[in-house]
């Protein structure tokens, strides 16, 4: 049987996914969107609005900081940088997920 992406399940982890991308380097909206698309081989097509509300939430929780780039063509870009709090949040979420995954696997083991 061929699996498909459960968008609902992934959506619950949008914040962690965004933090994960920002762990590597600062990035802006379209780039983050594209990275997610590429990493999932185009399987997970999330709406940009989902990402925007994630940025707003993370910014409010001081996990990321937004700043404007100095591009001239096509308007300035808004970049996001991860904070120390954001890095901790990412690591914690990742550990939590791994643990949850383990539990879930145990629960779903038998058919």
């Amino acid at each position: 049987m061929k699996g498909k992406v459960s968008a609902d399940l992934l959506r619950g982890h949008t914040d962690t996914i965004v933090l994960g991308i920002l762990m590597k380097s600062d990035s802006y909206g379209y780039e983050i969107y594209n990275t997610i698309l590429e990493k999932t081989g185009g399987l997970y097509q999330l709406k940009e609005a989902t990402l925007y509300s994630s940025y707003k939430r993370l910014e409010k929780e001081e996990c990321i900081i937004g700043y404007w780039g100095d591009e001239t063509q096509g308007g300035r870009r808004k970049y996001y940088r991860i904070t120390d709090k954001g890095k901790n949040r990412y690591r914690q979420n990742k550990v939590d997920w791994e643990f949850t995954q383990q539990i879930l696997n145990q629960l779903l083991e038998e058919e």
Binding site: Y28, G29, E31, E48, G74, G75, R76, R77, K78
Partner: peptide, 17 residues
Amino acid sequence: RDFKEEITSNLHARISN
């Protein structure tokens, strides 16, 4: 206003791509 500018520049990048 900031949010609108952010959306506009991202849409622009996406369309050019």
